[in-house]
């Protein structure tokens, strides 16, 4: 409960910073997602009330932009860059290797909620293609071996042997 209050206070600060302007909806959603991790129904209702916007408008915006998440993602997040340069340089094979080894599908998480595998259209590091982002670290000129090893490391190395 305490934690919730603290998050709400942070959100209020953000709203105030933006003067409760409707036009700052995207910035507010960005910050709200930073604070809460994802945007659930209650949070969207809260924001719609604060900005005096219909809930449908807020939900419409959230679902239009792929950056906003409606569900909590895993403790660790791996993002594959599916930009043109990465595709041409074989990111697909790395994604398949991750899916196989860690038993999850792109867009989803492992059953234990430890790992999510997401896709992005381009992180703009094309000269280093293929790129995979493990948590916040960009791995350029990625190979299956390097990436799966890195993921095992962030997961704590437990899963590696099975």
């Amino acid at each position: 409960m305490e934690k919730d209050d603290k998050q709400r206070i942070m959100l209020e600060k953000v709203l105030k910073e933006h003067n409760y302007q409707e036009s700052a909806l995207l910035e507010i959603l960005h910050r709200a997602q930073e604070i809460y991790g994802y945007l659930d129904k209650d949070l969207m209702m809260d924001i719609s009330g604060s900005l005096n916007l219909p809930p449908s408008h807020v939900y419409g915006v959230v679902t239009f932009y792929s950056f906003f998440k409606l569900r909590k993602s895993g403790e660790h997040v791996v993002t594959g860059c599916l930009g043109t340069a990465c595709y041409v340089r074989g990111v697909e094979q790395i994604m398949e290797a991750i899916e196989q080894e860690f038993k999850l599908k792109r867009g989803g998480s492992t059953a234990d909620g430890k790992l999510s595998l997401l896709l992005t259209r381009c992180i703009g590091a094309c000269a280093m293609a293929p790129n995979i982002v493990v948590d916040d670290e960009v791995i350029g000129k990625a190979t299956k071996e390097v990436v799966t090893q890195k993921i095992r490391e962030v997961l704590g190395g437990v899963k590696a042997e099975t």
């Binding site: 409707e22 036009s23 995207l26 408008h57 419409g60 915006v61 239009f64 932009y65 792929s66």
Partner: peptide
């Protein structure tokens, strides 16, 4: 500054306006 949120079409000139105004691009 105004931040995008992962929509390719937002680079189109009328879509970018909608997005700056806080709407769907």
């Amino acid at each position: 500054l105004r931040f995008g949120a992962g929509a390719f079409v937002a680079g189109e000139e009328t879509a970018i306006l909608a997005s700056v105004e806080g709407r769907r691009a």
